[in-house]
Nucleic acid binder design. Structure first.
Length: 149
DNA sequence: GCCAACGTTGGC
DNA sequence: GCCAACGTTGGC
């Protein structure tokens, strides 16, 4: 089993939204590297749910991957903001996985706190740019972060 | 709202 | 294939 971190802007889709919905297709990823990570995901993988672009960026919950990657339908929908005219049903460019709410953390583990922790210096979230919306987390990083809760 | 860091696009 | 222009992300 692998571990991941997935970003969402809470004004668009928050951990509480996911808690209400239960399971959600993680659509709209339009970056090749992030897409490749989605395609590496397997049912049962675990991910941190991270709130980005907000007052207090933080890891706020845990989710489980419940499907393999499949073509993101929004790429074919001209009315969707994620529509990609260069993609086709014969050769879909973009993928998604579905994730299921597992639980909220007892408290948010903030970006500031992650940055201040020497054990997490290698965390992908903290590397230059860190603009990927989906990124891997090592088992050691996963355990270390959960122990901060 | 600013701006640094990137990815993508497209002219050449 | 280079690279400037442009758009987006996301912390602050």
């Amino acid at each position: 089993m692998k571990y991941w971190l997935m970003k969402s802007e809470p004004t668009a889709f928050s951990i509480d939204d996911l808690a209400r919905r239960g399971t959600e297709p993680w659509d709209g990823v339009r970056n090749y590297q992030a897409r490749n990570y989605l395609r590496q995901m397997r049912v049962g993988d675990q991910a941190f749910f991270y709130h980005s672009n907000c007052a207090e960026p933080a890891i706020v919950g845990l989710v489980e991957v419940v499907t393999e990657a499949y073509p993101d339908p929004s790429q074919f929908d001209p009315d969707s903001p994620y529509f990609d005219p260069k993609s086709s049903r014969e050769a879909p460019r973009w993928s998604l996985v579905e994730v299921r709410f597992e639980r909220k953390l007892a408290r948010p583990i903030t970006l500031r706190e992650l940055k201040a922790d020497p054990a997490l210096a290698g965390l992908a979230l903290l590397q230059r740019g860190h603009r990927l919306s989906v990124m891997p987390v090592t088992p050691a990083q996963w355990r270390h972060i959960l122990a901060l809760e």
